[in-house]
Design a protein around this nucleic acid. Structure first.
Lengths: 261, 261
DNA sequence: AAAGTATAGTTGCTTTTTGCAACTATAATA
DNA sequence: TATTATAGTTGCAAAAAGCAACTATACTTT
């Protein structure tokens, strides 16, 4: 099988030039518009934790279809403005929340002929985590609201297939919390261990042992101890920490709940 | 926040009729072609294990662009034939391999203005696992071959951004093997525990302890003991098993390698 | 100011889980 | 029949997690 590389990657210079001329000619004649294409959109599931509950950002649709219904924020990708799908998601995130660089991860792509009455559409969905105090909902989005997530949804039906998409996003969030550190992205840059533990408990919907949780987090060695302490009304003030490496995604060697699914 | 559901989900019958007439009118006037759309394709990363190595299926491109280069199988989604992206992936899988229902999971969507010289394209990539003996490469695909995967790729560059896509797929495969049972989909329906262990070792590229591996697998209670035993030349014949529930995706409570990343 | 209360953080022990290595089991083969 | 090769089990040491009591440090109450 080692010959495959030779026959495709390189060859005599003359042959390559002919191939290159062939491709240039091909591209000159190529007309993308002859192929029928589905419409392509990008939607966002923005999560935050506040008031002891997980919340997702929803917008009320101003236009048809599903006018008046609540939906995930998002919209058409613009090939002239967006150099990539990721860039499109980042643009829509900024337009919606003004947040610079929180945690943004691609969830999944949903596409079918019947998910939108306007016809065949595909949407690539991203989910983002952010601290609730870092967001001020922007500009013209008077109809954007944080809605409490209970169970696997918000308790009422959303536009398009967004009910299902939100449920998938919630499931993915819970699943990732079991074995990664991503919950730190739901907190402000400086936070305490009890706050972090509370965040896990809220999303996983179960109490966690304090001692085990601390051991787990400290052994992962992802937190940097800060100088100050946080005073929260009564009780002993808690040590402040900062997440050490916002880029690297690290994993716990073991699922955080005792009886993982 | 409970009022949101009321204002969007339902209302007086007369109002809903007006809204519905509005939406019908909107859809009648709607012309999807006014929006510029990226081209949309679906690509597949097909994995199998044979000759003690992980292999991926590649095809040699017959046409420009990247004529003669090796690439992942796939192609344009056809909105007239494909009711959904998932259905398109399943269709291409059958066209390529004739396999009915192996493990097929969406990996990720890659889209940008510069990944294809023909212009803005997006591709949703699926990865599939199958037993090597279940596949006979089909029909006109004389240029399709199983290529050995070493490290995070095949050792030579692929067309488009497929080198990167393959690397992502390999990483996802390894990552999922750490905490799920999906390796069973790389084996025929009936298999032995030593074969399953060997499959994990080949992909994770490290030896596993026999006793711990068996404990782990048996505790997960996913295998059904069969009547027969398998004779493999010399040595004691091994017990045959069958995977119990091909639909449910189950998780190990802990990562399989001792020192997870 | 002292006692009470609330929350943070630690410690020591029990229980559970894993890693390791020796052991038994069952076939083909010399 | 002994040897070899692989399958599968068992027992124990080591590591990790769960649990509960303990100390620490603030504010609040009396």
């Amino acid at each position: 099988m080692s010959g495959q590389g030779d026959s495709t990657e390189s060859g005599p210079v003359g042959v390559m030039n002919a191939t290159e001329r062939g491709e240039a000619e091909f591209l000159r004649r190529y007309d993308a518009s002859v192929y029928e294409k589905p419409a392509f959109t990008v939607d966002l599931v923005l999560f935050t934790v506040r008031d002891e509950h997980l919340h997702a950002l929803l917008v009320q649709r101003a236009e048809h279809p599903f006018k008046g219904c609540w939906a995930l924020p998002g919209g058409f990708l613009d090939p002239r403005r967006d150099d990539s799908v990721d860039a499109c998601a980042a643009r829509k995130l900024v337009e919606e929340t003004g947040v610079r660089a929180p945690y943004l991860e691609q969830l999944k792509t949903y596409g079918s002929c019947d998910r939108d009455p306007r016809g065949w559409t595909a949407t690539t969905v991203y989910f983002a985590l952010m601290a609730s105090d870092s967001v001020r909902l922007l500009g013209n989005q008077e109809d954007a609201r944080w809605v409490r997530v209970q169970g696997d949804g918000v308790g009422f039906a959303l536009a398009f297939d967004h009910t299902r998409i939100l449920a998938d996003a919630v499931e993915r969030l819970r699943s990732k919390l079991e074995y990664t550190h991503i919950a730190v992205h739901l907190l402000p840059e400086e936070f305490t261990l009890p706050e972090l533990q509370r965040t896990y408990e809220i999303i996983l919907q179960q109490p966690l042992d304090k001692s085990s949780f601390r051991r787990r987090v400290m052994q992962a060695d992802m937190l940097e101890e800060l100088a100050g302490r946080q005073r929260d009304g009564s009780g002993r003030p808690a040590q402040l920490y900062r997440f050490r490496d916002y880029d690297r995604q690290t994993f716990f060697p073991r699922s955080i709940s005792r009886h993982a699914r």
